[in-house]
C-alpha cells in the first residue's frame, strides 16, 4: 500500500504540479477531502480546492519547475519534500508579479482512503518567497 501511495504522490507532482492537468484532481482527490495550506485557509474541499491551490501557484509562477527530493510512506500516509523554482510573473499573496526568480521548498502530506487523497496538508517556505519577491517590510 505504501508503494501505491507513493505513486499517488508522484502523480500529484507530475500531473497537477508539473503537468498543470488540473482535471486529474477529479480522479486523485476524494470529494470531501480537506485541502490544508496556510496561505489559503478557506479552500473548498475535494478536487475543486486542490485545483484552486494549484492555480494559486501556477498563476503566480507560470514557469514553475518541481523536483521531488524525497517521498516517505507508511500505512495510509505519504509525505514528500519538493524543490520548486520559477519566475514571479503573477500576483502571489497579493503581491503583483515582480519578475523575480524564486526558489523554495515544500512538504506535502496526504492521507489516503481507497486509493484517493482523503486529506492533504502542505507547508512551504512562504517567508522566503516574500523575501525573494521584494515584499518584506523595510526591504528595498
Amino acid at each position: 500500500m505504501a508503494d501505491d501511495n507513493k505513486a499517488v504522490f508522484q502523480r500529484v507532482v507530475d500531473e497537477l504540479w508539473s503537468g498543470k492537468n488540473l482535471d486529474a484532481a477529479d480522479e486523485l482527490f476524494a470529494a470531501n477531502a480537506p485541502n490544508n495550506i496556510p496561505v489559503a485557509p478557506d479552500l473548498p474541499a475535494g478536487p475543486d480546492g486542490a485545483k484552486d491551490l494549484l492555480s494559486i501557484f501556477h498563476n503566480a509562477f507560470p514557469d514553475l519547475t518541481i523536483k521531488v527530493d524525497r517521498v516517505h510512506a507508511m500505512g495510509d500516509r505519504v509525505a514528500g519534500r519538493l524543490f520548486q523554482e520559477g519566475t514571479h510573473s503573477g500576483s502571489f499573496l497579493g503581491v503583483a508579479g515582480s519578475g523575480n526568480k524564486v526558489d523554495f521548498t515544500m512538504i506535502g502530506l496526504f492521507r489516503l482512503e481507497n486509493g484517493k487523497i482523503a486529506e492533504s496538508w502542505y507547508e512551504f517556505d512562504s517567508l522566503r518567497i516574500i523575501q525573494q519577491i521584494g515584499a518584506m517590510p523595510g526591504a528595498g
Binding site: 496561505v39 489559503a40 478557506d42 479552500l43 473548498p44 484552486d52 491551490l53 492555480s55 494559486i56 498563476n59 503566480a60 503573477g90 500576483s91 502571489f92 499573496l93 497579493g94 503581491v95 516574500i130 515584499a135 518584506m136 517590510p137
Partner: peptide
C-alpha cells in the same frame, strides 16, 4: 508583517482564494 492581499481582496463571500481577476490573495 502586514497581511498580504488587502488591495486585491474582494469582500464578497464565497470563493475567496482567487478573485474575479484571477489574482491570488491571502
Amino acid at each position: 508583517m502586514p497581511p498580504f492581499g488587502e488591495a486585491v481582496q474582494d469582500h464578497h463571500k464565497g470563493r475567496d482564494v482567487i478573485n474575479h481577476h484571477g489574482h491570488t490573495h491571502w
